[in-house]
Amino acid sequence: MALPLLPTTVVGSYSMPGWLERLKTEFYARRISRRDLEEIHDTAVKAAIKDQELAGVDVISDGELRRDNMIDYFAERLPGVQIDHSSKKFHYDFYDSKVLGKLPMGPLGLVDDVKFLRANTDRETRFCITGPHSLAKRIRNEYYPNEQDFALDLARVMNPELRAIARAGADIIQIDEPNYSGFPDDLPWAVKALNTLIEGVDAKMAVHICYGNRYGKPSWEGSYRYLLPGIVEARVQQLTLEFARRGGEDLEIFRELPPRFEVGIGVIDVKTQAVETPDQVAERIRKALEVIPAERLFILPDCGLLHLSRDIAFAKLTAMVEGTRVVRKELKH
């Protein structure tokens, strides 16, 4: 299905209902079974997909509602990562996880998530993977000589899963790497790990870089200046970046990007409950168009919508879509 000019999409996560948080925590307390939790997840994911469709979003995700946080969903699936299951009491907590030896190869079991998404929508899809740099920052390394070697091996092990995800129907695969902004000096080796991760993957590849969204708050501040020229070495087709919360001052930097890169601009601030108006969204898009041609722009929220209530998340997506339509009409005249 052909996408319109200025396609709208999401960064990944959708609003996590309070009842789902409670049921996930019930699972860790061993009061409901894994099978029951999976049925609950299926229902929540279907609702997230439907909300995105009703809001009019062009490229949608599964809402990431099966995931507790952006690390554990991958750490518990990676062969060779040791998990202390007693270390987690609340679903959003991180496991105490570590690596004591070289990571073996093996499937991560993410293909079923993509198939479920594909089976429940006719729209283009975006499936998100936490990248090797961010995983290496959270999983304790007790084997590899340094973080760089650990991240490169994580990428090697995860690469076949990304190839399988693409075959299963993911149109865009997004690598989430918010930790780039917290550790900008890592960028040269982090980009090498990114390229190892996505080598030979037959899908449009994106990398999401923000300043963190833990509990709906930024983890770092700064400028995207550190990304250039290093990010140009990344063999992705799209960068997705937050601008709504931080303002568009950094946009000028991206004049320096080669034309092969698309840019997903954040026009929705996910760290506030205030719902943007379509006019505010349209003005943010117009500002971006002064720097990046419309043919290379995607429109999205700053980060995932996880920490917003469902009514606010839906209202923000609706405003994003309506504001984008305003600018599309302007471009046609």
Score class of each variant (00 low, 15 high):
256 E>G: 08
57 V>W: 04
242 E>Y: 05
274 A>G: 02
62 D>S: 06
178 P>Q: 02
288 A>I: 01
311 D>M: 12
226 Y>F: 15
258 P>S: 06
299 I>K: 04
190 A>P: 00
34 R>A: 14
218 P>V: 09
285 I>L: 02
292 I>N: 11
7 P>R: 01
276 E>S: 00
171 D>N: 15
269 D>T: 04
33 S>I: 09
112 D>Q: 15
37 L>R: 11
34 R>H: 13
61 S>G: 12
120 N>W: 05
139 I>D: 03
158 M>D: 08
215 Y>F: 15
112 D>K: 15
26 E>Y: 10
255 R>L: 11
217 K>V: 14
155 A>M: 08
71 I>V: 15
287 K>T: 15
71 I>W: 05
301 P>L: 01
9 T>G: 03
199 E>H: 14
86 S>L: 07
23 L>I: 15
277 T>Y: 06
170 A>R: 05
318 T>R: 13
245 R>K: 13
202 D>E: 12
316 K>Q: 04
43 T>F: 12
246 R>T: 10
211 Y>V: 06
8 T>K: 01
166 A>W: 11
76 E>S: 11
306 L>R: 13
37 L>W: 09
142 E>T: 05
151 A>H: 01
234 A>L: 07
53 E>I: 14
227 L>V: 03
318 T>F: 09
170 A>G: 10
12 G>L: 00
34 R>D: 13
92 Y>F: 14
217 K>I: 13
23 L>C: 13
180 Y>A: 11
215 Y>T: 15
183 F>W: 10
317 L>K: 07
165 I>V: 13
276 E>D: 01
177 E>V: 10
16 M>Q: 11
243 F>N: 01
35 R>E: 11
331 L>A: 03
48 A>N: 01
90 F>S: 11
87 S>P: 11
282 A>M: 06
72 D>L: 11
176 D>L: 05
133 H>D: 02
20 L>D: 06
120 N>E: 06
45 V>C: 02
179 N>C: 13
282 A>E: 00
18 G>W: 13
7 P>K: 00
263 V>N: 00
154 L>Q: 02
309 S>F: 13
197 L>C: 09
46 K>M: 09
20 L>I: 10
109 G>S: 09
324 T>P: 03
287 K>R: 15
117 L>C: 01
237 Q>L: 11
139 I>T: 03
196 T>H: 04
285 I>E: 02
9 T>Y: 01
132 P>T: 07
106 G>P: 12
119 A>R: 06
83 I>R: 00
140 R>H: 12
296 R>V: 09
143 Y>W: 09
206 A>C: 14
229 P>C: 10
318 T>G: 06
266 G>T: 06
123 R>G: 04
193 A>F: 03
221 E>C: 10
286 R>F: 04
151 A>M: 05
241 L>Y: 06
295 E>V: 08
34 R>K: 14
257 L>Q: 00
289 L>P: 10
170 A>K: 07
107 P>L: 02
251 L>T: 00
128 C>L: 14
91 H>G: 00
21 E>R: 15
32 I>M: 07
109 G>M: 08
210 C>M: 10
110 L>M: 14
196 T>L: 06
86 S>V: 03
21 E>F: 14
230 G>V: 09
266 G>P: 07
260 R>D: 09
154 L>V: 04
164 A>D: 15
278 P>H: 02
146 N>F: 03
116 F>G: 02
280 Q>V: 04
52 Q>A: 00
147 E>D: 14
154 L>S: 00
129 I>S: 03
161 E>C: 03
173 I>R: 08
194 L>R: 03
213 N>Y: 05
244 A>V: 02
